[in-house]
Design a protein around this nucleic acid. Sequence first.
RNA 1: GCACGGGUGGCAGAGUAGCUAUGCAACGGACUGCAGAUCCGUGGACCCGGGUGCAAAUCCCGGCCUGUGCUCCA
Length: 462
Amino acid sequence: MTLRVYDTRSREKREFSPLNEGRVSMYVCGITPYSPSHLGHARCYLAFDVVHRWLEASGYEVDYVQNFTDVDDKILNISESEGVDYSVVSNRNIEDYFEVMDAMNVRRADHYPRVTETIPEIIDMISNLQEKGHAYVGGDGVYFEIDTAPEKYGQLTGQTLEMVRAGAGGRVADTGSGKRDHRDFALWKLAKPGEPFWESPWGDGRPGWHIECSAMSLNHFGEQFDIHGGGHDLRFPHHEAEIFQSECCTGCEPVVGYWMHNGFVNVDGEKMSKSLGNFWTVREAFENHDPLALRYALLSVPYRNPIDLTPEFLQDAVIHYGRLVEAYSASLSSDTDSGIDLSNYSQRFTDAMNDDFNTRAAIIEIQAVVSQNPGRDVASWFEKYAGDVLGLLPSSAEVLAGRAEAESARADIADRVEGLLKERETARQTKNWDRADEIRDELNSIGVIVEDGPDGPTWQLA
RNA sequence: GCACGGGUGGCAGAGUAGCUAUGCAACGGACUGCAGAUCCGUGGACCCGGGUGCAAAUCCCGGCCUGUGCUCCA
């Protein structure tokens, strides 16, 4: 079975075939770093991290570019209210982004271009569009004129020019901008007093939001590239704007082979967002959950489906993640092979991932192996599939260290526990259940869980 | 309103025509003084109404509900 990828533009899963054999160019819209990352961001970059990993596991060489919109209105608002330079705000949140993504085993992209480092390329692209008659200078900046390429409208959303005209209703008049048509979008925004700016042929200002991604992808990949990813909400207008800009600039279409959009993280059935105030930052989530357990949760739903975040949903993932690590740990310490025929699991895992990166179905195969007897061969299987592909495993060193630590903690109190257990067994033999339970409670209070089995009691640390 | 998705057991979530999804939870049994863990087992679903088919959760039509987009947004 070959890899099939759902493409938003053609609205179907298509067999994956990159422009250059064996190589994949992938661009994913990155964050606007005006606040710490929340779980919605995590879902997106986790999803494309898995795409990245699976393409590589399938033998492709992947060139992965992800941008930072490090100057924009929201960043400027915050920098103004804090009385600091905008770069303080963006750098702080970019740092936060890398820290939390690293903690969740998100592998780094190959390039992280920033708007502020791409200004010359952006200006070139706008100039080019202007020369070709697709852009005009308005009162407060440069705009892309939609009517110069009406046939490109609606490729990702199915909307027509007329629909959007109707949908915008009365909002057009009060934008107060120098646009000719409200559907036109800004390529260059002239700076207002006090705002940071860059020089340009049209005056001091900064780029519009959409043009940066086009300029960056053109800069890194040229006229066409294979995969463009981002959140579902970016389809319109952001990604449609990119189609206009790139294809009108180069005359080459389609600019993107496969448009991939991840579903949202919802809370109580609604999109997690700043404006609704129902978001958790990734850091807040880390306070209650292991970063990799969160990763497990966010990958346990296929990337295009929405995730409704509930305590039960997270708890489920915590349980399964714990079992996975436990099974991996046990298999690392094993000195025999399990003798399990793992090829069936591998095959189903591969089929799942090849079906538009179905991590849910893939994880089920992981769970099936977790419930088998651990052995050395299982350890390497886990490392390959749960580790390399899904990124769900801590390093073997970490796992072994955790095991060693647990054993040493156990050894530290072993004498005391054994003594109490001996006393408890005496009590049990004389059917003194009150005393036996009292001892068990005492052990519980120091974090020891006692379990009576057919061969007598065993104990472990909670 | 228009566009694009989605509606599967208590919950999450696979499954694009015939064959037990799976996990968690629940229930029953084994084992237990009790508890826990473990093992074995059980039940339970395809939004509604039409249509096509030998056969539909799966295809077609209509309806209802719901999410997102149409403004910055992963």
